[in-house]
């Protein structure tokens, strides 16, 4: 399948991480308790951070650990406990809906994998040495963010503050007068 694969430390690390990621994803789909599902998504987020390091995006890997594995997972756990924390996922009733979900997802997956593997597209060949050699990742991101992308950056900060205020307004219990 991966013809011409040279076994190096990087490829071994990649396949271990990929195995961990997919195992956590399958656990997310197959676990009975909702709380275990939320914990397995934490595993997926940490594995994704490891993939980011393999792709030489160090800053994003740390941001992923902080934002996703730290904040979002804990927030999901809080939300589960605030609703019904010992609730089991109800067994799926056999109707037409799950069948179509399986068929649609499998079809999409097969099409994408066919495009990646067998359609004859020549993907750019990976070079052995990094294109960002000798450059500080954080410095590059900072310079790009505050020169070329300064307007999207400011807009994103506005979106974040609106989302925060909106979330508080939505979740706030209205006063009974």
């Amino acid at each position: 399948m991966f013809s011409g694969l040279v076994i190096t430390g990087q490829t071994v690390a990649f396949f271990l991480i990929a195995l961990f990621l997919i195992a956590c994803g399958v656990m997310l789909l197959s676990m009975k308790k909702v709380i275990y599902m939320a914990i397995s998504i934490g595993g997926v987020f940490i594995g994704a951070a490891a993939v980011y390091i393999l792709l030489e995006a160090d800053f994003l890997a740390f941001a992923q650990v902080l934002v996703y594995a730290g904040a979002i997972t804990i927030m999901l756990l809080f939300a589960i406990m605030l609703t019904k924390h010992d609730e089991l996922e109800r067994p799926a009733v056999i109707t037409a809906h799950p069948v179509w979900s399986v068929l649609g997802t499998a079809g999409l997956g097969l099409i994408v994998l066919w495009v990646v593997k067998f359609s004859g597209i020549k993907w750019p060949q990976a070079t052995a040495d990094s294109p960002f050699q000798g450059q500080d990742n954080v410095k590059m991101i900072g310079e790009s963010l505050f020169s070329q992308y300064v307007i999207p950056f400011e807009l994103v900060s506005v979106v974040l503050i609106v989302a925060l205020v909106g979330a508080i307004t939505l979740a706030n219990k209205e006063e009974k007068n």
Partner: peptide
């Protein structure tokens, strides 16, 4: 050496 296809498959 890592290749593009591995990451796209993942």
């Amino acid at each position: 050496m890592l290749s593009v296809e591995q990451f796209l498959t993942l």
